[in-house]
Nucleic acid binder design. Structure first.
Length: 793
DNA sequence: GATTAGGGTTTG
């Protein structure tokens, strides 16, 4: 057989004649006696098998010298090889592009195509019994082969095959123009592949090595997977078959035919794992050493920034930075802009831009809680990056390069109205173009750069609690989570809890030593989603006083349908009778919904409560300048049955219009508040519990999950005696008045730790979550007690 | 079958 395939492994019985003398391709000339000579090269072109008569074939192929950088010759390092007869057929069936050949028994003939193909002036003709082709298939260069070589170094056939494939690498200081070479280097600048005006994607790199030469490198390929997988400066790159050339007076490298690339993480001491799409690449001990040496060299040169990216919490306005994050959701904005919602588990120190998109255009789930929403930032991705962003799946970990934090972004695609209160907020833009390496890429799941991030984000998602501002978590009503501690975690002692840093979730068994506030009504709070402020629920004395104050204003108020009641003052008052007025929106009267929304002017708190029991929505008002307005927002703005609702003084922008309510379909506290420009405050229960378990004691807050802890809704607890009793019952059971610790029950608690910043100091806080204090039979522990409520005062 | 780009901020 004139074509011999030299297989890897012990099964090969082909011996390459050892007495052959190898001639580099550029040195081949007709004066050379080819007897006993060989040529070695890699197949860079394989033509079709051409039949020229019965059972007679011709095939043309091109091989390229493997070690050409060592040859100083004007002759090209690639040569045409013409195979004749059965050998052509054999070759056609057993040789592939990329294989390495050893050719023997050839003759040289003038190449008729040299002027056209710029290859060697002569070609090799392979015919007759003397001609032999030894083939080292590129698949024998697989890592498997090189591993087996390492584990059994005495297998000579293996060694031969690998030896033929061993590459030599050139220092960047030794590059001569016009030569195809292999190099190992450290990446000091890179762009993710971008579309060219031609047919390919292009990666633009700058690389360096121990010679300290910095060399530009341009990689073209129409296949994205063939591009180097570079994630950060300092990554190690190995390039095979790149061509050196002069550009602007400097040497640069360009992909040549059959190029390949492998990259490695540049961290000293980390495992040397090749990143490549290639199924057949050569990697041995020597490569391992080369990578490690480059890592150590780069570390000593301080080429590599300490951190590959910047967390959102450290981002400053106007900065360009790299971000490592997880994609939560995305939505097209227009043809040249895409919205990506991402997070990295840290909170941006500046308010960030909100971007409105139609919910049905959003791919991926919107943030599951107010807390996660507060950690989520909107990134607008423009132009050339949209193509890449479009292919991303929510959940993917990304690195975004040269992201721009734009302060005071005010105009946005898609929604230019209602942005007025967002001026000054940071907007994140991935601008079009690729300058400064601008772009984005997917980080593989096993990337060392995301392992910590993954753990943190999963922990936040699981516990759903962890914030520098504890109150941010409020907006996740427990009934919408329905998540309880799964109790698969082993309980830990309180002493142990205190030794670990946040954020963590623990399962503990503990007793309640004490709690605050002792007067339960003081635990009722009003919370604003928007400005995160929290305030106490005012007592009836304070609210009643505000109603009396509002009565002093007794002016007219036109434009509404009204019913006036003239009431005498309590004797012995000599003041004239006062007027109590029921107003209704004219529009609602017209549409038969008049009773849905009543405005009440001149009433006392007590009268308002009585009237509220007959109408679904009662809004106390006054009209100091002849036009209707709400009372001071310290007072409830709305009465619904026994429930009272408050608005945020800071965040409300009250506007009562005559047509108010006409657009409202269902009248509840939310829609009424919205129609009047009131930012509705939410009720919550806030308590501080002192726990102990024999190993130590610990203060934990009860806030986010207090409603499920007590089986009570906070708004009911503010209005309803029975709900208040339930809270008191629970506390009396956990901490019976006058009891000793021995009498108190042990609780199974789920505890979240999180970090809070106060006056520049970080402090660890704990919150009880996912815990049901009332157990399976909530009504079995009703103990006699006295209680205090807001209306008692 | 050659060409593409050849680092150095959008203008939303």
């Amino acid at each position: 057989m004139p074509v011999h395939v030299v297989k890897d492994g012990a099964g090969s019985n082909i011996q390459v004649p050892s007495q052959l003398q190898r001639i580099p391709i550029p040195l081949l000339s007709p004066t050379l006696d080819s007897t006993g000579k060989t040529v070695k090269g890699r197949v860079i072109h394989k033509g079709p098998l051409v039949s020229i008569g019965e059972d007679y074939y011709v095939l043309k192929t091109v091989v390229q010298e493997e070690d050409s950088q060592q040859i100083l010759s004007s002759e090209p390092s690639s040569i045409n090889v013409i195979l004749f007869g059965a050998m052509a057929k054999d070759y056609s069936e057993s040789v592939s592009h990329g294989d390495v050949l050893l050719l023997a028994g050839f003759t040289l003939a003038k190449s008729p195509t040299a002027h056209k193909d710029k290859l060697h002036a002569y070609n090799l003709q392979m015919a007759g019994d003397d001609a032999s082709v030894y083939v080292y298939p590129s698949s024998t260069l697989s890592p498997r082969a090189s591993i087996s070589k390492r584990s059994s170094p005495l297998r000579t056939e293996d060694t031969k095959a690998v030896k033929v494939a061993r590459y030599s690498y050139v220092s960047l200081s030794d590059l001569k123009p016009g030569v195809v070479v292999n190099v190992y280097a450290v990446v000091c600048f890179f762009k993710q592949p971008f579309r060219t005006k031609g047919t390919d994607y292009c990666s633009t790199l700058k690389i360096t090595d121990q010679s300290n030469n910095k060399v530009g490198c341009t990689i073209f390929s129409d296949k994205l997977e063939e591009h180097p997988k570079i994630f950060k400066i300092g990554d190690i790159i190995r390039l095979h078959r790149v061509k050196s050339q002069l550009f602007n007076g400097a040497i640069s490298l360009l992909t040549s035919h059959g190029f390949s690339v492998v990259t490695f993480d540049g961290t000293v001491g980390s495992p040397v794992v090749p990143r490549t799409c290639s199924k057949s690449f050569c990697f041995g001990e020597e490569d391992q050493h080369t990578v490690e040496a480059l890592r150590v060299w780069a570390a000593n040169e301080s080429l590599v920034p300490a951190e590959p990216s910047v967390p959102l919490s450290s981002v400053q306005p106007k900065a360009y930075f790299d971000l490592t994050c997880q994609l939560l959701a995305k939505a097209p904005v227009d043809s040249s802009c895409m919205l990506m919602k991402v997070w990295d588990g840290t909170k941006c120190a500046y308010p960030t831009l909100d971007v409105f998109v139609e919910p049905n255009t959003l791919e991926g789930s919107p943030p599951l809680s107010k807390y996660i929403e507060d950690l989520t930032v909107n990134i607008l991705v423009y132009d050339n990056h949209v193509e890449i962003a479009r292919q991303l799946k929510p959940g993917t970990y990304l690195r975004i390069y040269n992201l721009h934090a734009v302060p005071g972004a005010s105009r946005l695609p898609g929604n230019d109205s209602e942005q007025s209160d967002q001026t000054g907020h940071l907007g994140f833009h991935l601008h079009g173009g690729t300058s400064y390496g601008r772009g984005l890429c997917v980080l593989p799941d096993d990337s060392p750069d995301i392992q910590d991030l993954k753990r943190i984000l999963e922990k936040i998602s699981d516990s759903d609690v962890n914030d520098s501002s504890l109150l941010d978590v409020w907006n996740t009503p427990p009934e919408s989570i329905e998540r309880t501690c799964d109790h698969t975690m082993d309980p830990v002692t309180l002493a142990e809890v205190k030794t670990r840093g946040p954020p963590q979730v623990y399962h503990v068994k503990a007793q309640l030593m004490s709690y605050l506030p002792q007067k339960l009504y003081q635990s009722l709070k009003l919370y604003c989603h928007k400005c995160k402020s929290i305030r106490d629920v005012p007592d009836d004395g304070t609210v009643g006083g505000m109603f009396l104050e509002a009565q002093k204003d007794d002016g007219p108020c036109d434009g509404y349908w009204k019913l006036e009641l003239h009431l005498p003052r309590e004797p012995p008052s000599e003041l004239p009778s006062r007027t109590l007025t029921l107003h209704m929106s004219s529009q609602l009267v017209g549409s038969g919904k008049a009773k849905e929304l009543i405005f009440l002017k001149g009433a006392t708190l007590e009268e308002t409560c009585r009237i509220a029991s007959a109408y679904s929505n009662v809004v106390p008002v006054m009209s100091p300048q002849g036009s209707m307005t709400l009372l001071d927002l310290s007072a409830p703005f709305l009465f619904r049955g026994s429930r009272r609702y408050y608005g945020c003084k800071q965040c409300s922008n009250v506007k009562l219009r005559e047509s108010l309510g006409e657009e409202v379909e269902m009248f509840d506290e939310k829609s009424v508040a919205e129609a009047m420009g009131v930012q509705l405050l939410q009720y919550g229960l806030l308590m501080k519990l002192e726990l102990q378990d024999g190993t130590g004691s610990l203060e934990a807050l009860l806030w986010r999950d207090s409603e499920s802890f007590f089986h009570v809704s906070a708004v009911d607890a503010a209005a309803d005696q029975e709900a208040q009793d339930r809270v008191q019952d629970t506390m009396d059971r956990l901490c019976p008045p006058g009891s000793s610790m021995a009498d108190r029950p042990w609780l199974d608690l789920c505890l979240s730790s999180y970090s809070v910043e106060e006056d520049g100091q970080r402090r660890t806080c704990y919150q009880i979550c996912h815990t049901d204090a009332r157990g399976p039979n909530p009504h079995t522990h009703i103990l006699p007690h006295t209680h205090t409520t807001p209306s008692d005062t």
